[in-house]
């Protein structure tokens, strides 16, 4: 039985350009977004979502909340975004540990 997705990955691997040694993040020829910047961006939006949820929580406590579902949606969104951040962070730590464990 052939699995087309795995074949697709093989094609992608062969079309990948050969490795040319380490390239620093300051290299001007690097295209695409820096992982650090991406992470900073993500953390900022998680922070924004949690601030929004906190504001709605204060509104709920003071009785100024008009839509109950707004608060629950904001709380769900900030929970999901935090879970996503933690998942990305765990993967990054895992990758670092894998590299550190590499036998040299």
């Amino acid at each position: 039985m052939s699995i087309p997705a795995i074949g697709g990955i093989g094609a992608a691997l062969t079309s990948t350009p050969p490795l040319t040694g380490p390239v620093g993040p300051s290299d001007a020829t690097t295209t695409g977004t820096d992982f650090g910047k991406l992470l900073g961006h993500g953390l900022q939006s998680v922070q924004d979502a949690q601030t929004h949820t906190d504001q709605l929580a204060v509104q709920a406590a003071t009785g100024d909340l008009t839509d109950v579902h707004d608060y629950m949606i904001a709380s769900t969104q900030s929970t999901l975004m935090t879970e996503l951040t933690v998942a990305v962070r765990n993967k990054a730590v895992e990758a670092f540990n894998d590299i550190m464990r590499m036998p040299l």
Partner: peptide, 19 residues
């Protein structure tokens, strides 16, 4: 909000209308 939660945001606008 971001496009990340498109389904949730659309359903939230529906909740506001039905409320």
């Amino acid at each position: 909000m971001s496009d990340m939660f498109g389904a949730i945001n659309s359903a939230g606008s529906g909740l506001t209308v039905y409320r």
